[in-house]
Nucleic acid binder design. Structure first.
Length: 261
DNA sequence: AATCACGCCAACCGCCGGCGC
DNA sequence: AGCGCCGGCGGTTGGCGTGAT
């Protein structure tokens, strides 16, 4: 019974890709472009599924794939992004040029998961609401002292400058997406929006690309947001999203908020 | 030298959402 | 609206390499 199951499961498994297969696939995709993977698989006579072809291209053959050990900076970024995003590997990988989701996932599972195991497991969720991990995480981060200190509401929260920013009213969700959200800035698709955001948030260059700031206008229960830039500010960015992490007020301290575009 | 245990990572699986018909 | 196909995603598996015994 179990044997049959295993046989069935492994039938069609082709194992590692051979250099010839790689070459065929690479040549084809470079000539005809990506997509239609099922067709590609048939056309090329590769005894592999479309998915397998797609994966091989995406994770190995695609140009600009960065191979080799992760740098300290990349590792730090993965940890911080995972802190915010949970197991959203493709999203995290998207912030690491040349790295694939599979690589990031493997790296996390083999290297970083142990390192950060003290924080507990987060299966597909950015934040484990049961133990309010977002707060301790930030307490470990020296860059977040301001937010932590201010959470009691002792500091008056200044309203944002009148002219800034053009932020869409965030959609507050009640699901368990966690305290991470994506903030879309309406009408700004290049780095202009970021400059405006940076001005608004009084961005500090030496703050390791992280910002603590009031975001009261987004939600009246929201005291602070923790923003993460994956690129140098003021360089053209790839999309019009800012990652941010939000903290609630005293009444719902630790209760996560989610703002989705 | 042989064997075992473990870590790493490429590849696969199953699920889901988007899209066209 | 329902269906099927395709692509994307995260989770899991299995094989290989390497260090320990």
């Amino acid at each position: 019974m179990e044997e049959n199951k295993r046989e069935k499961k492994t039938e069609g498994k082709r194992g590692l890709w051979k250099a010839e297969e790689d070459l065929i696939l690479k040549n084809y995709v470079e000539t005809h472009g990506e997509g239609n993977w099922a067709k590609v698989s048939k056309l090329l006579g590769l005894k592999r599924g479309g998915k397998s072809c797609r994966l091989r291209w995406k994770n190995y053959l695609r140009p600009n794939i960065k191979r080799g050990a992760m740098s300290k900076e990349e590792e730090d970024l993965i940890i911080r992004m995972h802190n915010l995003l949970g197991n959203r590997w493709s999203l995290i990988a998207g912030r690491l040029p040349g790295r694939t989701d599979n690589e990031v996932k493997n790296y996390w599972n083999t290297h970083l998961n142990k390192k950060t195991s003290v924080l507990g497991k987060r299966k597909g969720k950015a934040i484990d609401e049961s133990n309010h991990q977002s707060i301790p995480n930030h307490q470990n981060n020296t860059n977040t002292n301001i937010a932590i200190e201010n959470q009691g509401g002792e500091e008056p929260i200044a309203p944002p400058p009148a002219e800034l920013p053009m932020i869409s009213s965030p959609k507050t969700t009640t699901d368990d997406e966690g305290s991470m959200g994506l903030l879309k800035v309406d009408g700004l698709t290049d780095n202009t929006w970021m400059e405006r955001a940076v001005r608004w948030f009084d961005y500090d260059y030496d703050n390791n690309y992280e910002i603590e700031t009031p975001l009261m206008m987004m939600n009246k229960n929201l005291n602070y947001a923790h923003m993460v830039f994956d690129e140098e500010p003021f360089t053209p960015c790839l999309d019009s999203f800012v990652l941010f992490e939000a903290f609630g007020t005293d009444s719902d301290l630790g209760k996560t908020q989610s703002f989705l575009p």
